[in-house]
Design a protein around this nucleic acid. Structure first.
Lengths: 233, 233
DNA sequence: GTGATGTAGATTGGATACAATCCACTGTCA
DNA sequence: TGACAGTGGATTGTATCCAATCTACATCAC
């Protein structure tokens, strides 16, 4: 009745995920990877057949994705992959700048050497994925690297929000990678960002991070506006 | 059986919401109002009986609420109303400061006189609700008032995030109202905030808003830490 | 008496069945 | 020919049914 702080959960770490959660994760990957493009309809029965489950778990997964903003559901009309106007994509980058700047400012002073080492390891993987042209893996690792810099902040709510926003932008960054086959400067910037962090230059690192995000957004906007303009063809 | 048959109204504009959405909304209200307290179990069958529907729509509603962070679901164990540690509640107010400050800064320069009038009207209602002690209504109106100040920003993504965070804090603000029967200064602050907005003093208004949110958070933290401390009694 | 273990009831998870709704096609009539 | 109402198929929404899992209590061994 009183403090129920110990909910008798002996199991550590590993979290078994239910079918809806697993399906949601899979669908998210497929949307981010571009397999499902903006505006594509996600038909429940088709997905149910594909995943060899009934439509029930699919529906719950779709609702979960709806909450993250990746799909939109309409009564009796089904779910479609959301499509963001250019200005909202820009807004997402502004949000990232805001949230991630805050996170890094709070995290960096608390980061241990081991945590910085973890970030460096992730950056190495990230660069390798970039060289390999592993677009999908690059997307994951990009967030993993950024996230590793924020973990020490202990700001779980902010981190969760930042992650949601990142998932949204991820889609378009991958699209940019496919369209232009290059992320101008992003790789160099990551390395410089990590250097500043290792040097414990908090203010400089935060400023650099914000600039990094802002430029990524600007580059993307340029690519997308070109790519979307002649879609009437 | 068919008692809750919706009259087939060919209404336009009004968004017909599905049963899961309606249930989610209702449950959210009941959680925010304190009817369901932190840690309370939300049993599917009980809710299904209450709403006179099957468990299916309930499950989808619960998943929707899970995404907003109001409830947590565990495999084969059901859904419970989430309970936030004090520090995370504080974090939510920091987030509000960040997000709403940004929103107001972008919105205020675009606000029309009519929109400011709308805000003023909402503030009047808000004050009335406060006088009446209508806690639940006060919660709604508080966000409605804040939101009205941000609408002109055109930042839909940011606004959506801010709303989610607000819903989370709402719960605890209402709790504070119940515990202390007063929100120190908040009412006066709202009026001053609106005055600054009407005077188009953007920087001052943003600074004031941030302070307003920060103080609300600080006050709440004081109340909650007292209320939670002697739970072993 | 204390601890482990097995079993029954309750509750959730998933599958199937049925109803409601939408959409595209078609056939008719002006 | 063109517009429009009716109709059939496809798809979603909800209810019901069965299986899997958890929790609590009783039983048994030490």
């Amino acid at each position: 009745m009183t403090a129920t702080q110990k909910p008798t959960s002996p199991d550590l770490g590993i979290k078994r995920l239910s079918i809806p959660e697993a399906v949601a994760e899979s669908l998210q990957q497929r949307i981010l990877s571009g397999e499902f493009k903006e505006g594509d309809a996600l038909v429940q029965e088709a997905l149910a057949n594909e995943y060899k489950v009934s439509r029930m778990p699919i529906r719950e997964a779709l609702r979960q994705l709806e909450a993250t903003g990746l799909v939109a559901m309409q009564m009796h009309k089904g779910a479609v992959v959301t499509s963001l106007p250019l200005e909202q994509i820009g807004e997402l980058f502004d949000l990232r700048e805001l949230l991630e700047g805050e996170l890094l400012a709070r995290s960096l002073p608390n980061m241990t050497g081991a945590q910085l080492g973890e970030s460096r390891a992730l950056l190495t993987q990230l660069e390798q994925a970039y060289i390999d042209g592993a677009v999908s893996r690059w997307g994951e690792l990009n967030w993993a690297f950024h996230r590793s810099l924020y973990l020490a902040s202990g700001r779980v709510q902010t981190l969760a929000l930042a992650q949601t926003v990142n998932i949204q932008t991820d889609r378009y960054i991958r699209l940019q990678l496919l369209l232009t086959n290059a992320l101008e400067g992003a790789e160099v910037e990551h390395r410089e960002l990590l250097r500043l962090c290792e040097a414990r230059e908090v203010k400089a690192a935060v400023a650099y991070l914000k600039r990094h995000i802002r430029e990524a957004g600007a580059n993307l906007a340029r690519v997308l506006s070109k790519a979307r303009a002649p879609d009437a063809a």
